[in-house]
Design a protein around this nucleic acid. Structure first.
Lengths: 133, 133
DNA sequence: AAACAAAAATAGAATGGTTCTAAAAATGGA
DNA sequence: TCCATTTTTAGAACCATTCTATTTTTGTTT
């Protein structure tokens, strides 16, 4: 048991490799942060949290990594705020509400029967619907 | 009939006054643009459209006006994009989809029975739910 | 009308999140 | 080890938005 590899890091690594992303230290750290903190953090929050234990980390790397993760469909960018993009590693269909007072973002599960009737010629990928502001 | 006041301008003026906003030339122009162009424009699009016929118009005025209109609940800010805020003078309950290819934003009407069951202690003002990205 | 106060508009500087650039470091194969 | 490729990095650049200080407009009082 002492020799067993860290379970969380293993899951993180697998999730990246599954999407063709080479699991560098930095990418693992960003992905692990997102998977273990369901707070919809900004890029800056992630950087600030990781920096103490990764003093060579650059903000550009955090942005590069997040953009790569979004491109590959591993995390979602949430544009519920005017200023900052927020990120979410949970890809299950759900929507977000933001508290007008404290600014925190709330996950709300949705049922499939909520999908609206779309106009002619429009189809919606449920995994892409993610934000109600 | 020749002497009749412009109907659109009248409606615009009334809508502003109804919310306690003094209808200056600039505010009327921004509001009229939003009411006659259902394209969810950015602040810059509005400025660029108005500038030729209002050469002293300042971008700050467009931003000031839009912020005032949002504060007073006359228009909505749509944060469906990472970079630019978009604005909508239609306050009827509806949601927005954005085309991944051309970036245009689509209005979709919603039915009241879509409102999700909220967690304990949370209530939702339907007029505030406006964005599905 | 003149004078004054309050509100609104303006130009341009400042801000701040994100992207870009060019160089350094790490990785992996021959 | 040598070399090519990928990744990371620091800091500059970018650009939407806000701020600041000034000017203009509006409305009111003599």
């Amino acid at each position: 048991m002492v020799l067993k590899m860290d379970g969380v890091k293993n899951i993180v690594k697998e999730r990246l490799q599954l999407h063709g992303i080479k699991p560098s230290l930095q990418r693992m750290a960003v992905m692990e942060y997102l998977m273990t903190h369901r707070t919809h953090p900004t890029a800056d929050m992630i950087f600030t949290a990781l920096y103490p234990s990764m003093p060579t980390l650059s903000k550009a790397t955090v942005y590069n990594t997040l953009n790569l993760l979004v491109e590959r469909g591993v995390v979602r960018m949430i544009t519920i705020e005017e200023k900052n993009a927020r990120f979410d590693a949970c890809m299950d269909p759900h929507i977000h509400f933001r508290c007008r007072d404290c600014g925190s973002i709330l996950d709300v599960n949705v049922e499939a029967h909520w999908v609206p009737a779309m106009p002619d010629g429009v189809t919606v990928d449920m995994s892409e619907t993610y934000c109600i502001g």
